[in-house]
Design a protein around this nucleic acid. Structure first.
Lengths: 244, 244
DNA sequence: CGCCTTATTGAACCCCATCAATATCTGTGG
DNA sequence: CCACAGATATTGATGGGGTTCAATAAGGCG
């Protein structure tokens, strides 16, 4: 009998959580079954279309969430319109900013996104009682910090070509979370961002991003499929280009 | 009777901790007196000269630490020598990477630094027992994450002039942690980094940093004192230049 | 198809990097 | 105290990677 089957027959686990990634790899892994049950009473699953803001910057958000599917972009904006995407989040990441009434970043759905939302209050209470939960949140914060710093290196010191290679490499890993692609197996990946988003992520312009795409295509590292899909022909070469 | 006097006469607080900032504003505020006493048995105060590495990336560090004085720079290095400083840390910041055997960043003393070191094992054990301690560490991680993302915006989207203005503004705030300087009071600040460090922090070259310094001097925003000291003549203007 | 959004390609420009020279600082020893 | 040497900082001249401005092409969807 596999794990999934056992879960289905375990009446203590809330129905909405049974197949949820967040319960295994996400912050919900830090909760006991009864806590999960308690929280699940006030959760709601929401589907958010691409382009929609998940949390408004100008108001205190009253919910946290876990991503169930899709990609969320975290971004910062300057008054004159310059924008920087400071992070991408995938299932089963936690979304929200504990210990602060409002986040310093805006969260938008990059693709269609489904999230499991729960009241801030409910989670805050639970955190004070369940050390494992805070531990799980702490771990994610530290992982995001490592990632943010890796992107600082990219933004501060890497060339346009290296930046795009980094990005495609990063997306490829997230498309195959369980087994990193072999060095020279072609990998088809689905890019969850527009050229404008990629530019805002990499600190470039859309024109430069586009030019680097064609450069990678001309050198045979990637091949264009349709629209947002790309096939990485030589994974190892892409990693080398990213110089990481 | 002020706080300090009371502390001196409180035999439960370890002598080394009595006047320590970390006990009030740092992670040690998350520990009870008896826990503090237990940890203090295995702590040691170290003085580290400027330029020395605190934690190497290639070996598993067996200690964590709290900064008591001085400035620590966290940096990342590319194989070809390109470098990016991804964060600065001041007293009473915690140093180390919980939940991972090795950090993805190198920590170097930017100035002479004194740290309170304690064994990883001791803190790890304590964290599992003391939720407030993990909470304090979690808070610092989230603050550092916010800061890293602010610098991502700077590295990705701001001009050289804006970057240096951001930097000086940031240093000025850390020189006066308790009361931000008034809009037009001249503020003398002590820059804890060399031009090379500033360049590595801002994703620029030393030449560009130097040129932006003279530009700020020519426009009267700052005045040069001696060597690493600078007086900010118009604080509000500096903030505007940073466009933040 | 026709319209609008998104992406690609081209040409000119500019900010910052690079290369190079000079100046200033800092510590050491005569 | 000054002279000297190495490190650090400033300034100048030139060049290049990426931006900007502009036009064309390719998708997406009614």
């Amino acid at each position: 009998m596999d794990d999934t089957r056992r879960d289905i027959h375990n009446s203590d686990v809330p129905a909405v959580c049974v197949a949820c990634e967040a319960r295994h790899r996400g912050v919900c892994s830090g909760m006991k079954d009864d806590e999960l049950l308690e929280l699940s009473r006030s959760t709601q699953i929401k589907t958010i279309p691409a382009g929609t803001e998940l949390f408004a910057t100008d108001q205190v958000p009253d919910h946290y969430g876990n991503i169930l599917s899709g990609v969320v972009k975290l971004s910062k904006l300057l008054e004159d319109g310059r924008q920087q995407i400071v992070g991408l989040q995938f299932a089963p990441d936690f979304i929200g900013r504990p210990f602060a009434d409002q986040s310093s970043v805006t969260a938008d759905a990059a693709t269609d996104v489904t999230v499991c939302m729960f009241p801030r209050r409910a989670l805050n209470d639970m955190v004070t009682r369940s050390p494992d939960l805070e531990s799980a949140l702490h771990r994610q914060a530290l992982d995001e910090l490592d990632e943010a710093r890796e992107w600082m290196l990219t933004l501060g010191r890497r060339t346009a070509e290296e930046r795009l290679a980094m990005f495609l490499y990063y997306i490829a890993l997230h498309n195959n979370p369980y087994e990193p692609p072999g060095d020279d197996d072609p990998v088809a990946i689905d890019i969850p961002l527009t050229r404008a988003d990629i530019a805002d992520f990499l600190g470039l312009t859309i024109e430069t991003v586009s030019r680097q795409f064609t450069k990678l295509r001309n050198t045979g590292v990637i091949a264009k499929l349709d629209g947002r899909k790309v096939r990485i022909e030589r994974f190892a070469e892409l990693r080398d280009l990213a110089s990481s």
